[in-house]
Nucleic acid binder design. Sequence first.
DNA 1: CATTCGTGGTG
DNA 2: TCACCAAGAAT
Length: 350
Amino acid sequence: MRDETLNQQLLAWYDRHAREMPWRVPPAERAKGVLPDPYRVWLSEVMLQQTTVAAVKSYFEVFTRLWPTVSDLAAAEDADVMAAWAGLGYYARARNLLKCARAVVADHGGQFPSDPAGLLSLPGIGPYTCAAISAIAFDAPETVVDGNVERVMSRLHAVTEPLPASKPQLTALAAALTPAQRPGDYAQAVMDLGATICTPRSPACGICPWSAPCKARAQGIAAELPKKTPKKPKPTRYGTVYLARRADGAWLLETRPDKGLLGGMLGWPGSDWAEDSPPSAPPFPADWRDAGAEVRHTFTHFHLILTVKLAEAPMGTNPTTGEWQRLAPASLPTVMRKAYDLAASVLPPH
DNA sequence: CATTCGTGGTG
DNA sequence: TCACCAAGAAT
């Protein structure tokens, strides 16, 4: 079957089954020449990196309400943006989001560049996000290659070589299918197909618009693709956090360094996290007591078990690290919020 | 090319 | 319970 027939079949399917999203312009509107605001496309695409649509929606609403334009975002305080991102994960995205917004204002007059090279040079914009903005916001014939596209292409063409080694081949196959007309709709169509029909575990081949030409389906191996190289097992690390509440209700918090895990986010003072429970000293002398339970949390590449120590501090207490501040628990990354929830359930109400 | 970097849903 | 997975980028 010709590539032109394949992508037209997918576009016809998308015209009837496109998912509605807050950042998306539906195909009927795009047919009239309406394109989405590049700022909203960029913001949604960065949020969607390795993150589900369901998780992103509420964050997108908050961000666009607080910062309706890229200039608004560029002028925001770092701490406010990091707090708004809290809970979404991969916090380097939020740091790069601010860097990118400020670069767009400083170097591009507050308008996102429309050329791929210009987009690719911006912080936090890699090959996928560059192609997505180009195709969706500017209707340029760029090819998006995300996890959905890798899965769809590996099945359509029965590519059995495991990822990531097969990525160049899958990219070439995807590029060959990208149409000159409606590339933005097409990019979103492939991803919708992967998200709703050509799913990882049990693909709905019976209702797939590409069922007939799909080689993996013909061979009965669709659900087994794409093959992936096995992952390393996750070690378990241990650590201790110190949660102190002052008499006025303030908590002792520190802003973590920009580099590394949870970079730039609020956190509790404590030990490093290592496989052999590292020793640590509390941030001030007090009657530290155990919270009575541990916090368990799993990151991308290790499990964490945290010991939680609690203290109530009088006014005037001088810690060796961190600073006393009023706390909005929602501004904490999830692992830190788990420790807070435990403390709040143990300490007497303030 | 391999590693680092979060979180919540799911089977 | 737990590994897998989601619209990846930076190093």
